[in-house]
Design a protein around this nucleic acid. Structure first.
Lengths: 182, 182
DNA sequence: TTCACTGTACCGTTCGTTCGGTATAATTGT
DNA sequence: ACAATTATACCGAACGAACGGTACAGTGAA
């Protein structure tokens, strides 16, 4: 079985339990691999596993952005496309965000930079869509932040309330809110 | 030294590192108490420490709500008052949220109910302010959710970007956004 | 034969927790 | 008033369990 096969499992573990909450036993159980096998695929241990998951996440985000930008239509349509993909990635709000999980605990110091770059990339992508539709740069950047904030916050609320409906409402309303004033 | 003396320290630890990331050694170092002494104040161990912090947080939130509701003025003024207190509680966006931290890892199963009640109380308080100002109930409840979502999301972003400015902007803009349509 | 892969046994460290105890302050019985 | 008792605050040392990680001898397919 290839290394990449286990990445989705690792993603689910780290986003649910955070870096400090994920133990090698849990990983071993979830993947069905013994510790020796895990260290065969990830010689760098836990850190390399997170690293791998982050790379996959970067690619996933890049794909979502590419889908949205290549989408024929106005800004609203593009943002709706992005919303669809995001909704899918978070399983309709049932799954928390890895970026939030990695901003806590011992992980923060180690992965801060990567998380930062990912968030900035995401914000920039939303801003780009709005700028291309004619919005002023500064406002578009703020809207980009607002978009990521709404999604992250909605995920927190969905987790905390154990109820995905706030996330679904946000995902649905967000595109038109971001386009406000265009 | 009384038990309550250590609660702010514990709050800071748990919100920064999460339940799984906080070790008794860290707590011992932060409080200056030996591990054995910690069990004098908190016989229930780590869980009782979180419990105590959560009780303090409930009281803090209740105080903020009471301040906002007892504030003479329109809904905007009341929400601004709440924003001020919230801003203070999160140290201008420099400190993350305990509720988000406790929604991850092994803590989730244990403290889910308490976190849920706290979030619902917060949402309800915002909604109440808006309803008293004449907003329709359903919309007001949505706005309550939106308010908490914006704050939680902004805190995540502030942590992830290592930059509190998005949080400060959100806190500043939020009251008028929530009053939109009144 | 080679090499990716795995099971088993281990390493040192740290985890949350408990035990047995000390020093001091407060309370009580006489 | 004073001694006996009890409560409070604290700590060093140790517990078994689990931690992240390593060493190594297989195993089985190409």
């Amino acid at each position: 079985m290839a290394k990449q096969t286990h990445v989705p499992l690792l993603l689910d573990l780290f986003r649910q339990f955070g870096y400090d909450g994920v133990t090698l036993s849990k990983i071993s159980e979830a993947t069905g691999l013994g510790k020796a096998s895990l260290y065969h695929y990830f010689p760098g241990g836990k850190d390399e596993m997170v690293e791998t998951v982050l790379v996959a996440l970067e690619q996933g985000l890049e794909q979502i952005i590419s889908d949205a930008l290549s989408c024929k239509g106005d800004a609203l349509t593009r943002l709706q496309t992005m919303g669809d993909r995001i909704n899918q990635a978070y399983n309709g709000g049932h799954k928390p965000c890895l970026l939030a999980a990695l901003s806590l605990g011992s992980a923060k110091a180690v992965f801060q930079e990567r998380v930062q770059r990912l968030l900035q990339r995401w914000i920039k992508a939303i801003a780009t869509i709005l700028i291309e539709a004619g919005m002023a740069e500064e406002l578009a950047h703020q809207r980009g932040e607002d978009g990521v904030i709404a999604i992250q916050g909605a995920l927190i609320l969905a987790q905390g309330l154990n109820n995905p409906s706030p996330f679904q409402r946000v995902i649905q309303q967000l595109p038109s809110q971001l386009c406000q004033g265009l």
